[in-house]
Design a protein around this nucleic acid. Structure first.
Lengths: 171, 171
DNA sequence: AACCACTGCTTGAACTCTCAACTAGTGGGT
DNA sequence: ACCCACTAGTTGAGAGTTCAAGCAGTGGTT
């Protein structure tokens, strides 16, 4: 923070901000608890299974999978290790690149996913879609789109700054 | 899940849902990383400090604080322990109820908060408010309100079911 | 006064996530 | 053929969260 002036939030912005954080933290916590309780896995793991289930052959390179579930490679690596221990996913070397690994959804994993899905979807519907009008759902989609769009430049900027920092550091 | 029919998401709902989760997970991750990097604390801890800073005397009972930041008592207990170790918060017995404890924001904690706030707020503004139009901000507020409203009954329902389960089990 | 269900908060263990190394393999220059 | 910077993925340690169990104090009942 070396901008000279912080643009603080107005009273109304504060209110929106807090309501928003409250609602969606609670919502996420709800989803996570439901899934942990009923299917013994956190939402993050569920989403890994979903992505794999939609992939051709139920297989994906670790890197692609990481992108799809928007998690760091490291996090994914740990997660897949855990899922492998549960027997839901198996890992094998990728062909074409001997560094690579592909994760594959096992039949047990697919079964677990099918078992978990109805409860999860029901929760999403009841807690998110049911309380909203159609226009609100549409608006939410557009809002999310806008925020996502505003996020991409941020990444690029971060990378650019990193480069700049390196350039300065290295003589 | 013993409802006979799961109300799956339509294609459009799917799209909204995924965009939403993507955008706001990324957004949250962003906030958290910024705060960890620049101020060495996760967003959850920052919010604890905020709540304390707004409380009369910078003091709050652990229970109230837990409500305010919407975390379990256990989580809060661990968090306050950590914040105490950093010297940002101190704990002392509540008077009137010898089980109780109150958390107090120390001067160091207040300073840390003031140091952290501008960077955090700037991030919120640039990543959330700036990309949205005024109407979208308003819509987001209403959406959050609706979702929050739809969450309260869920809690009550959960508690009711717990009671029901107990009633069945005992005897 | 002795009981007992309940509340307020803490604790420990298991689990997940983050961050910073680290290994191994790739591909382009020389 | 040999470098060397870069990419793919893993690992380990430490931080934070969850869940279930625990301790102590409270307040109503008998």
């Amino acid at each position: 923070m070396n901008e000279s002036e912080t643009r603080w939030l107005s009273a109304e912005e504060q209110k929106v901000w807090r309501t928003f954080m409250q609602a969606f933290n609670d919502f996420n916590a709800h989803l996570d608890r439901q899934l942990r309780r009923d299917s013994g896995m956190p939402v993050a793991y569920y989403e890994i299974l979903v992505m794999l289930s939609e992939a051709p052959d139920h297989c994906l390179r670790m890197g692609e999978l990481a992108e799809l579930v928007r998690s760091s490679r490291s996090r994914l690596s740990h997660a897949v290790a855990a899922l492998e221990k549960s027997g839901y996913v198996s890992r094998c070397p990728a062909d074409g690149d001997r560094r690579g690994a592909v994760a594959r959804l096992t039949d047990t994993g697919m079964a677990a996913l099918e078992e978990a899905a109805p409860g999860h979807v029901t929760e999403v519907r009841e807690r998110l879609f049911d309380p909203l009008t159609e226009e609100q759902v549409k608006a939410l989609g557009e809002i999310a789109e806008a925020v996502a769009a505003g996020m991409r430049p941020a990444c690029e900027k971060a990378i650019a700054e990193e480069f700049a920092a390196e350039a300065v550091t290295e003589v």
